[in-house]
Design a protein around this nucleic acid. Structure first.
Length: 252
DNA sequence: GCTCATGTTCCCCT
DNA sequence: CAGGGGAACATGAG
């Protein structure tokens, strides 16, 4: 599930561990600890977690715990006594509770690092929730190729995933196969507006909301109809990902 | 058995 | 160098 709003939800979960001493780190699956060693942070205290795009950054002493959730990761603050889940991979045991990094498919992982976080995350564009209209025009202005690929590119804009991008394109009425460099200024304006709304409206929910009036609500159905105009939605691979759009409203 | 899945990376082309 | 396409990664769910 993890796109920007999901990770924001995990950040809120992580905040429950902020200020607490890390008594022990249980590495239940060593392959998910992709960098660093548990001992580095045992005995240290968690600081305040921050999010950049789909990355969660959790200070611990003078190190940082960096988490990426791949497609099936999540983070839960639980009581220490409650039974562990089959896919809990790394558990940060604190007084009064524990933070559990769970990940079924094992994409992504956890890094413990004292060096610059960019060494781990790679270059990231500005967070999708903090881009104003002008910046958005700048970013897309030096870009060619498909608009969907551009919005998915974490080095350009950090945080949007497959669902968020489809939702944004649908709301802006822009075809996912359109070329960025051929979009009018007005269409890019609409794209920015749509992205901003989708991000803002998703953040409180902690996920891309599958609610009435959103594409996400219907995209899984076999004969899905556009929530706005009722046309039969199209489904095809664009930029390597399953993409859903309304062929009537989203013309190139 | 088969297909598909909210992500990223690497390799090969154009 | 910028992009596009496909495969790989690991583990289910339908």
């Amino acid at each position: 599930m993890p796109e920007l709003p999901d990770v924001e939800g995990y950040r809120r979960e992580a905040r429950k561990a902020a200020g607490r001493r890390i008594e022990q780190v249980d590495v239940l699956d060593g392959t998910l600890l992709r960098g660093g060693r548990a001992a580095t942070i045992e005995g240290e205290r968690f600081g305040d977690p921050v999010r950049h795009g789909k990355w969660l950054i959790f200070p611990a002493g003078d190190a940082e715990v960096l988490m990426h959730f791949g497609m099936t990761g999540r983070l839960d603050w639980t009581r220490r006594r409650s039974p562990r889940h089959q896919h809990d991979r790394i558990v940060f045991v604190c007084r009064g509770g524990e933070l559990r990094y769970r990940n079924m498919r094992k994409f992504g992982g956890v890094w413990i690092s004292k060096r610059g976080r960019e060494r781990v995350t790679g270059a990231l564009g500005p967070d999708a929730g903090e881009i104003d209209r002008e910046r958005f025009h700048e970013l897309l202005g030096r870009r060619r190729g498909g608009v969907k690929a551009a919005l998915m590119d974490q080095t350009l804009i950090a945080g949007l995933g497959n669902l968020m991008v489809d939702e944004t394109l649908w709301r802006a009425r822009v075809n996912p196969r359109a070329r960025v460099d051929r979009l009018s200024r007005g269409r890019i304006d609409r794209l920015w507006q749509a992205m901003d709304e989708v991000v803002r409206e998703s953040l409180p929910t902690g996920r891309v909301p599958p609610i009435e009036g959103w594409l996400t609500d219907v995209r899984g159905a076999r004969e899905a109809a556009c929530p706005r105009c009722g046309a039969r939605l199209r489904k095809a691979t664009v930029a390597g990902r399953t993409t859903v759009w309304c062929p009537r409203e989203q013309r190139t």
